[in-house]
């Protein structure tokens, strides 16, 4: 190949040392980026649009009925003052924290890592059986999972049958400890994700490293703590961020299991937002809560990005 025939505009720089498009005409660059436009268009209208709208509506008294419906006006920080002064909002924040801590950070993360570790040392039949069961729970539609676990935790459900069998008292778990029940339900439904991420990460650790640690006399726990875990820190960080963000916005599972009840005992932030905005028609107040949730998500997302960046650098 002696002559360069391809037009400059569509020639990519070799993948290894792609340069900034500095030398090339701006128009040519724009044409090459044209295929991005459908994606950008959709994201501007249906993602950026609503978020901007959210920022606007959160500072108004917008409502579906009453005065806020007829003439919308700015109310400054009133919605936020109302939120942070309200017991129901603080309750929702606490429940969201408890839900996220138990079901994502402790439950899914630890269980997923444990499963991935155990699977490396198990026989194929057992591995396939457990893998299928865990992934099966994950593939199920949200509402179906909610119904299955409602049945499981119910007064007449399987959990109580098992507890009675070993002589322990049972109760209606959805009534007695709703936030624990929905957290366990979310562990059941979501652990597969962590298991998959950790299985992928563990499979990339060279066997020799762990073997040589074993030769040096490092026992199981020490090996795990000082050799294996440090090698998958990045996967742990990625996984923690992703499942935290997913868990923060869980709605259908809790809504179909308890509707946030009894009372407000399992009303996490998304359910509280839904109730305020739609059951009580307070769109302005509801969007203010949405904005708080978006801000929490944005902070986590930024930490996650920083983590990825510093690893790459």
């Amino acid at each position: 190949m002696t002559t360069t025939v391809a037009p400059t505009a569509s020639t990519p720089a070799p993948s290894g040392k792609k340069s900034g498009g500095s030398g090339k005409p701006r128009a040519a660059n724009l044409i090459r980026m044209l295929p991005l436009s459908p994606a950008i268009g959709l994201m501007l209208v249906f993602l950026a649009g609503p978020i901007l709208y959210c920022v606007y509506a959160a500072f108004t008294n917008m409502a579906l009925t009453g005065t806020g419906a007829a003439n919308v006006k700015f109310v400054g920080l009133d919605n936020f003052r109302k939120a942070f002064g309200s017991g129901a909002f603080t309750n929702a924040i606490w429940l969201t924290l408890v839900f996220t801590l138990i079901s994502a950070i402790i439950g899914q993360n630890t269980l997923g890592l444990g499963l991935a570790l155990l699977m490396r040392k198990s026989t194929k039949v057992v591995r396939n059986f457990v893998g299928t069961a865990v992934i099966g729970a994950w593939v199920l539609p949200e509402v179906v999972a909610a119904y299955l676990l409602s049945a499981f935790f119910n007064d007449d459900g399987t959990l109580n049958v098992m507890l009675h069998a070993v002589g322990l008292p049972g109760q209606d778990w959805l009534y007695a400890a709703p936030i624990i029940a929905v957290s366990l339900a979310n562990i059941w439904r979501g652990t597969a994700f962590s298991m998959l991420v950790y299985s992928a990460a563990l499979s990339e650790i060279p066997k020799e490293i762990e073997e040589s640690a074993e030769m040096d006399g490092a026992g199981g726990w020490r090996r795990l703590l000082f050799v294996t875990l440090p090698m998958i820190t990045r996967a742990i960080m990625t996984n923690l961020m992703l499942i935290t963000l997913q868990t923060l916005s869980v709605f259908g599972l809790i809504f179909a299991m308890t509707r946030g009840g009894p009372g407000t005992k399992s009303q996490t932030l998304p359910l509280y937002m839904y109730e305020q905005a739609f059951s009580f028609s307070q769109i302005g107040y509801g969007t203010a809560i949405a904005l708080v949730m978006l801000a929490i998500g944005a902070v986590f997302s930024l930490i996650y990005l920083r983590g990825l960046n510093s690893e790459a650098a």
Partner: peptide, 24 residues
């Protein structure tokens, strides 16, 4: 910047966007 924005968006709670989306 585009890829970072995309990654950032994957983290946003879609549940929270639903109220404004309904308004829109």
């Amino acid at each position: 910047p585009f890829l970072l924005t995309v990654l950032f968006c994957t983290g946003l709670p879609i549940t929270a966007v639903m109220v404004p989306v309904y308004g829109l």
